[in-house]
């Protein structure tokens, strides 16, 4: 479902991606692990069609996202690191609005159930988002992505700001979606969360994958050691 073939992306003199190759299939959770500036967000922006690769090819469900924007809107859900919502709307109103934009219309009760399922306390669902913590906004973002029932999920540091319990809930939710056939790519530098959630892990350094691992084959300790070693080099 996601195919990245030898992609480079440069911003003037800076090379953000350098011959990146990546494939993520149906039912898979792939984690891109890398430090700041490794090219994780650039990869996600390329997949969202917001950037055009300098060279190489990117396919989402067989279509190039920067050429065919409908392949993104029709198949992709996205959770950014900082979910920006409308501060004057409540959580449930935000969810309703973003769903409405996607052409999804649900009753208020159904939306509330989704928010509850994503870990947002009922007592906060009708409060203005301006009163929310970062983690609470993140949960609304997850609910927006979940409601879209997308085939592809792109997550940029999705657990950022979430408490441990909410992070666990997110992991469970992502695994559930993958088991239902979703293709998930998450960018993170949270080693623990990545190992807990992903099937495969790619260590990204200077715009290229330097190591690819099966999460099941590696312990948290080994992953940390490998990661630190790559970062040091």
């Amino acid at each position: 479902m996601i195919e990245i073939n030898n992609v480079t992306k440069s911003y003037k003199a800076n090379l953000a991606l350098n011959g990146l190759n990546l494939k993520v299939g149906k039912g898979e959770i792939y984690a891109l692990l890398g430090s700041n500036g490794a090219g994780k967000t650039t990869t996600i922006n390329l997949l969202l069609g917001f950037l055009e690769p300098s060279s190489g090819e990117i396919f989402l469900n067989g279509s190039k996202p920067h050429v065919d924007r409908k392949v993104v809107s029709g198949n992709v859900a996205y959770i950014p690191e900082n979910v920006s919502l409308y501060p004057y709307l409540s959580g449930v109103e935000n969810l309703d609005y973003f769903c409405g934009i996607a052409g999804i219309h649900k009753s208020k009760q159904a939306l509330k159930e989704i928010l509850t399922g994503c870990g947002l306390q009922e007592s906060f669902q009708d409060k203005k988002v301006s009163e929310y913590s970062k983690g609470m906004r993140q949960k609304v973002g997850i609910a927006i992505a979940y409601t879209k029932d997308a085939k592809v999920l792109l997550l940029d540091e999705p657990a950022s700001g979430l408490d441990p319990s909410a992070s666990n809930e997110l992991t469970a939710l992502l695994k559930k979606l993958a088991s239902e056939g979703a293709c998930i790519l998450m960018a993170s530098h949270d080693l623990f969360r990545v190992r807990e959630t992903a099937n495969r892990i790619g260590i990204l350094k200077q715009g290229a994958i330097v190591e690819e691992l099966d999460a099941a084959d590696v312990t948290a300790g080994t992953l940390e050691e490998m990661y630190l070693q790559y970062m040091k080099n």
Partner: peptide, 14 residues
């Protein structure tokens, strides 16, 4: 500035 454009466009609005 709030970064909502990306989320909105992914949701399908032009």
């Amino acid at each position: 500035e709030q970064g909502r454009v990306r989320l909105l466009m992914v949701q399908g609005i032009t």
